[in-house]
Amino acid sequence: MKKVQNTHKNSDIEDLHDAFLMLVGAFNRPQRDVLMIEKSGIQLDRALFPLLVQIGRFGPVGVVELADRVGRDYTTVSRQVAKLEEIGLAKRQKSPKDKRINEAAITSAGKAMTDKIDVTRAKLYESIFLHWQAHERAELERLLKKFVADFIVVPERDKKTDR
């Protein structure tokens, strides 16, 4: 049986991958965080911004998982969570399910800050989606959630087949 490369299919995948890289790059730009901090009227070190947002959205969250989410090593994130704790925006606690896991949880002061960030983000997204139909936004959300769910599962499935 002769193997034939489907270059059209590879090109589609490469274009899609490029779009994902552009999206991740846009979200990871430090300038975007600085803009959000300024427009929200908050005082926060830019390096702590993505951690606070993640803790606010997904917390309480294990520090190891938090490090994975922001693409930093555990020790760096642990130190940064300690800084958030020092300034009263987050607290560290043991997971009620597994006492070996240290979690980061948001405080009321942290929640007040993320509420301001959320208002600023909503304004930004409203301007971006100004000319999008409601069904287009809903479809984008649905497809992104579907992709992320499958994207997370694939490495786990591959680990099982490598054995």
Rank of each mutant, 00 (worst) to 15 (best):
Glu65Trp: 05
Pro96Arg: 15
Leu143Cys: 08
Lys116Asn: 02
Leu23Phe: 13
Arg46Glu: 14
Lys123Tyr: 04
Ser108Tyr: 07
Arg137Glu: 14
Ile37Glu: 01
Arg100Tyr: 05
Pro60Leu: 02
Lys145Trp: 07
Val77Met: 05
Gln93Val: 11
Glu85Gln: 11
Glu14Ser: 14
Lys146Asp: 13
Met36Leu: 14
Leu124His: 09
His135Arg: 14
Pro96His: 13
Val119Met: 08
Asn10Leu: 15
Leu35Lys: 15
Val154Lys: 09
Ala90Val: 01
Arg163Asp: 11
Phe58Leu: 12
Tyr74Val: 04
Ala47Phe: 08
Ala109Trp: 04
Lys145Cys: 10
Gln80Tyr: 11
Leu84Ala: 03
His8Gly: 15
Ala134Met: 09
Glu65Gln: 15
Val153Thr: 13
Leu51Asp: 01
Lys39Pro: 06
Glu85Met: 05
Val153His: 11
Glu85Thr: 12
Glu126Phe: 06
Gly71Pro: 04
Glu85Val: 05
Asp150Pro: 00
Ile117Trp: 02
Ile37Pro: 00
Ile13His: 10
Asp68Leu: 06
Ala19Gln: 10
Met36Tyr: 06
Pro96Asp: 13
Pro50Phe: 00
Leu51Tyr: 06
Lys2Glu: 13
Phe58Val: 05
Thr76Asp: 03
Ile42Asn: 07
Thr114Leu: 01
Asp12Tyr: 09
Arg29Ala: 15
Lys99Asn: 11
Thr107His: 04
Gln31Phe: 06
Ser108Ile: 08
Val81Ala: 01
Leu66Glu: 02
Lys3Trp: 04
Ile128His: 06
Gln93Thr: 15
Ala26Lys: 14
Ile152Asn: 07
Arg79Trp: 01
Arg29Trp: 03
Ala26Ser: 15
Ile37Gly: 02
Asp115Thr: 09
Ala112Tyr: 04
Ala112Met: 08
Arg142Thr: 08
Leu23Tyr: 14
Glu38Pro: 07
Leu124Met: 12
Gly62Asp: 05
Phe27Met: 12
Met22Ile: 08
His8Arg: 10
Thr7Glu: 14
Asp118Cys: 03
Ala138Val: 05
Leu124Phe: 08
Thr120Gly: 05
Ala138Glu: 13
Ala26Thr: 13
Asn10Pro: 00
Val77Thr: 03
Arg163Met: 09
Ser95Trp: 01
Lys160Met: 11
Glu103Tyr: 06
Ala47Gln: 12
Thr114Arg: 04
Met36His: 07
Gln43His: 12
Phe129Lys: 08
Leu144Ile: 06
Ile42Pro: 06
Lys39Phe: 08
Gly110Arg: 01
Phe49Lys: 03
Phe49Pro: 03
Gln54Ala: 15
Ala26Phe: 11
Leu66Lys: 02
Thr120Leu: 01
Ile55Gly: 02
